[in-house]
């Protein structure tokens, strides 16, 4: 695993997008709990934030046409640096500064070849599984309300 910088391959970018998506959806308490199960992570310095701001959320007219501005959402971001210069970034929905900082720290650690596999196994894999289970439960509840309407006499009394 090499850092996903300017020289990163598309596979590196895709892997980093994958773990950043999982971290963005994990509450701070869950991140802290997973980190506690790891050997201590390297010390980090805050380069920016954590700080809360807004992202303008866009939709598309008709669902698939030109973009329009739907409204804003709160976002918290953080950038940290490990002792060896590795940078970790996080942008997470909401206002949880602790979540953003832990996510940035984990993003940095995951780019370090000697830490990558352990962090993936102890942090990302179980969180991803829990998130997939949550989505699966919603999908199954939705499936239980799926109907087949049978058309009967029309309302017009023809």
């Amino acid at each position: 695993m090499t850092p996903a910088g300017p020289a990163a391959t598309s596979d590196d970018v895709a892997a980093r997008q994958g773990w950043m998506a999982v971290l963005a959806r994990a509450p701070a308490a869950a991140l802290a709990e997973r980190i506690a199960a790891l050997p201590p992570l390297p010390a980090h310095a805050r380069l920016r934030g954590p700080e809360t701001g807004l992202a303008m959320v866009r939709g598309r007219q008709g669902g698939d046409g030109a973009p329009f501005n739907l409204g804003e959402m709160t976002v918290t971001r953080c950038t940290v640096r490990l002792g060896d210069g590795t940078l970790g970034h996080a942008y997470v929905a909401g206002r949880d500064a602790r979540q953003a900082e832990l996510a940035a720290l984990l993003d940095a650690a995951l780019q370090r070849p000697e830490l990558h596999d352990a962090v993936m196994a102890a942090v990302i894999a179980p969180l991803a599984a829990a998130q997939a289970a949550g989505r699966g439960s919603v999908a199954r509840k939705a499936a239980a309300t799926r109907v087949a309407f049978a058309t009967m006499a029309t309302m017009r009394g023809e």
């Binding site: 700080e51 809360t52 701001g53 807004l54 992202a55 303008m56 959320v57 866009r58 939709g59 598309r60 669902g63 698939d64 973009p67 501005n69 739907l70 804003e72 959402m73 709160t74 976002v75 971001r77 942008y91 989505r135 919603v138 999908a139 509840k141 939705a142 309300t145």
Partner: peptide
């Protein structure tokens, strides 16, 4: 309250076809 926060950027347009549908 929102006027007190900086704007970090704009999102990619939402892909509602890929929604986790509840209804």
């Amino acid at each position: 309250y929102r006027t007190t926060l900086p704007r970090f950027g704009a999102s990619a347009p939402l892909d509602t076809a890929a929604m986790l549908v509840r209804r």
